[in-house]
Design a protein around this nucleic acid. Sequence first.
RNA 1: GCCGAUGUAGCUCAAAGGUAGAGCAAUCGCCUUGUAAGUGAUAGGUUAUGGGUUCGAUUCCCAUCAUCGGCUCCA
Length: 593
Amino acid sequence: MVEKYEDSKLYRVRHSAAHVMAQAVLEKFPEGKVAIGPPIEDGFYYDFDLPRPLTPEDLEDFEARMREIIKNDSEFIREEVSAEEAREIFEDQPYKLELIAGLEEGGIDEHGNPVEEKPVISIYKSDKFVDLCRGPHVESTGKINPKSIKLMNVAGAYWRGDENNPMLQRIYGTAWLSPKDLKKYLWRLEEAKKRDHRKLGRELDLYSISENVGAGLVLWHPNGAKIRFLAERFWEDEHIKNGYDFVYTPHIGKANLWKTSGHLDFYAENMYAPIEIEDQQYYLKPMNCPFHVEIYKSNIHSYRDLPLRYAEKGTVYRYERSGVLHGLMRVRGFTQDDAHHFCAPSQMPEEIDFVLSFSLHILRSFGFKEIKAYLSTRPEKAVGDPKRWQDAEAALEEALKRAELPYEVDQGGGAFYGPKIDLKINDALGREWQLSTIQFDFNLPERFDMSYIEDDGQPYRPYMIHRALLGSIERFFGVLIEHYGGAFPIWLSPLQAVIIPIADRHVEYARRVAADLKQAGLRIKVDERSDRMNAKIRDAEKQKTPYMLVIGDREMEGNQVDIRRRSRERLGAMNVEDFIAMAVKEVEEKVEG
RNA sequence: GCCGAUGUAGCUCAAAGGUAGAGCAAUCGCCUUGUAAGUGAUAGGUUAUGGGUUCGAUUCCCAUCAUCGGCUCCA
């Protein structure tokens, strides 16, 4: 049984470190106001309302002062107080007063989450600091190891996470049980930076984003495009095998289409401004759904035709707010590997089952093992038949259970038009990114008056399921780069082997070998530069090319190549045919390494 | 969008109120090499953009754009 983080000593240490930090901050800024300061994954933070922006030097001061407070080894004392007493203690702390009011009503806790019971109001005293706090803490400040804390950075954060509220300054810190753990954590961060897709994207010449083109608009370079092509080819093959039809749709559509779909009412702020021509307004598509619906509607459908699965790698444009752009993960123009399923109610559970297992199959084929699932259910404001919502949610949950996928339920977190399952994957720094989504849509079938004819000859409303497996190909690629740290499995590597002739006299043979390998479908380059072999190996290693084939006098004589993997493993001399057989097999089997 | 930081050569960085420099990469030679950097030379910058202050701005100030870390958002 794994100990819950909330019950661990580490959690208490971090929570306590947050209090110690708050004291240090208030000593330097006596007029400062404190908000909240919880432990988080890998550390803690505390939010402050301060008279001026903090600098890195401030953080150094705070950290030094924290060590002094820790040295004092002052006891953490818990006291229960009445709301009235609490108000007195925190009379010049408006944020705390707001929290006290909330506690008194029993409606929400210090994180703004609703709670059932009216909680006890408790305070924690340590050294010269008192905080409204539920705890728990370590026994005394001395239990925090002064050498295993570090203040990391300052960031803005809205009070209570609401952008209508004032913005506070949040100091992020980290704390560990031992200096060794801290060191390990910092090392992990450094390592993660090396896997950053933005860094690798440049180093491996995969993609760029040019200011001349526009923020959030991706240029795929030949190496990145090669990987994308290979990934898409696999994706297409799997879709053909699994009963999908492909469709293609335009990048723009008339205003009226988006009016009918509801996007102009609910999504306009995320859409690029319209293009006007001949008194008609056209919008760049932020989604593909209305087009697929139009295709569906171009025919009358019998229940015998269902389910229909229309798939398209549809490029969409969304005007994301400037501050949210992030490499390939969050962009303004991206291609969704989109599909819409239309089915009869009786087919719906099976269809959901299929689409979830298909999603997992695709993600796992790209090496993703750690997949987190989220089920989002009906929100307050929702459209569509409640019975259908119920059935849909039940089908989603059943599918998750059958897939034996651990999942969290986000109660009321669904879109207004339907419940959904999202599959998320972590990036190098542990930030979660949503890739797959499987969403019901109870909105568009109504708005577009979609139907199919049942065996009684009457029209019925089909279920519409929207899904994207990779999500956006851009984001997927970003996550994929970080997942492999740039060392793509051989089936995806833009270059699968580089042939390294030792001297000029080996070049001709190297070219012949290259021709043979290319004939076998392998992606090959001969490094003909007049550099030393060592330098060529170094470059190939840095480019993370799976195989280096060294050719010198010995190999030339025996019609061989000397094989080195990017893992530094030396396989020694091998006949060319044998290498081809091995490499082709690894490509087919999607071998990683 | 909000808070903060940053923006100098392709990359990583330095310098400075008097028009910028290194390493790597690139290009051209020489070397002809045995598993992570052989060697010489050459070229490369309106210091993000637009204003302002100044005799003079790349440096100081303002705005814009972009990037980074967060927050919010993510149909």
